[in-house]
């Protein structure tokens, strides 16, 4: 006899949260868990993001002729451009999967606040971005003989990725419902995240070139402010994005 098929992801959420009023965090992590287990079964998103990132670095290598002198000043720029491009790939895919397979409707039916869906999706996008980062950094370090595996740099990348995935999740949730979706996401996203990217770039560049803390404190503050502002805005307007 055939075994029963595994339960549908939204149902797992309901089962794991037996009470009618699941705690906010529990529900958020349930969505994160769903995305991660789905990803580790198919591996289509992470592998695409990774290969794409490596290709972008490869193209930069030839476009900018990354010799030792140029590398010093340009490493942060190459990294952030790579993350930004790879990030759109992941955002597009993660929202399109929800929409096309009707999973979003399931999530909307779950007896949780809508913002839970936002934070869940944001966290899973953030996780994928960070996984790509963790793999790209050592690869870049080996290829170009610079040590990028530094705690302070990782912290900056984390801050930048948080803001990026907050805005990205919100905008991807909108563009996925439009006619020209995958084309539209970068067009809408990049002008909004450019301030985040500039601030992150400025801080990373300062760290890599051994700048004083006073030099990077202003963009660092902006980075944190950006994260706080856009997470709160997304939290407030996400209801209107998924409303039917």
């Amino acid at each position: 006899m055939k075994k029963q098929s595994p339960p549908h992801p939204p149902l797992t959420i309901n089962n794991s949260l037996s009470s009618n009023h699941p705690s906010f965090l529990k529900a958020v992590f349930a969505i994160l868990q769903k995305d991660i287990s789905a990803e580790f079964r198919s591996r289509e998103l992470l592998s695409a993001m990774l290969v794409f990132s490596l290709l972008v670095i490869l193209i930069f290598n030839f476009a900018l002729e990354l010799d030792v002198k140029v590398r010093q000043s340009i490493t942060a720029g190459v990294l952030w451009t790579t993350f930004a491009f790879a990030g759109t790939l992941g955002l597009n895919r993660s929202m399109a999967v929800e929409k096309d397979r009707g999973c979003l409707d399931g999530l909307l039916l779950a007896p949780v606040d809508r913002s839970v869906i936002f934070f869940g999706k944001m966290l899973s996008n953030l996780t994928f971005m960070l996984i790509v980062t963790i793999i790209i950094l050592p690869v870049y370090s080996v290829l170009y003989n610079v040590n990028l595996f530094r705690l302070d740099l990782l912290g900056v990348i984390l801050l930048g990725s948080i803001g990026y995935s907050a805005v990205g999740t919100l905008i991807a949730a909108m563009t996925v419902q439009t006619r020209t979706r995958d084309v539209l996401l970068p067009v809408l996203l990049f002008p909004i995240v450019i301030s985040l990217l500039i601030a992150a770039l400025k801080v990373s560049n300062g760290l890599l070139n051994g700048a004083e803390f006073s030099e990077i404190s202003a963009p660092l503050n902006l980075l944190i402010a950006y994260d706080v502002i856009f997470i709160s805005i997304a939290f407030m307007v996400f209801d209107y994005v998924v409303e039917e």
Binding site: P191, I192, I194, S195, I198, K202, P219, L222, I229, I233
Partner: peptide, 18 residues
């Protein structure tokens, strides 16, 4: 328009520092 209205001054600040 709300996101854009908030992002524009942030962009200005970030570029000013850069």
């Amino acid at each position: 328009t709300i996101i854009g209205g908030i992002s524009a001054p942030l962009t200005f600040m970030s570029i000013r520092w850069a």
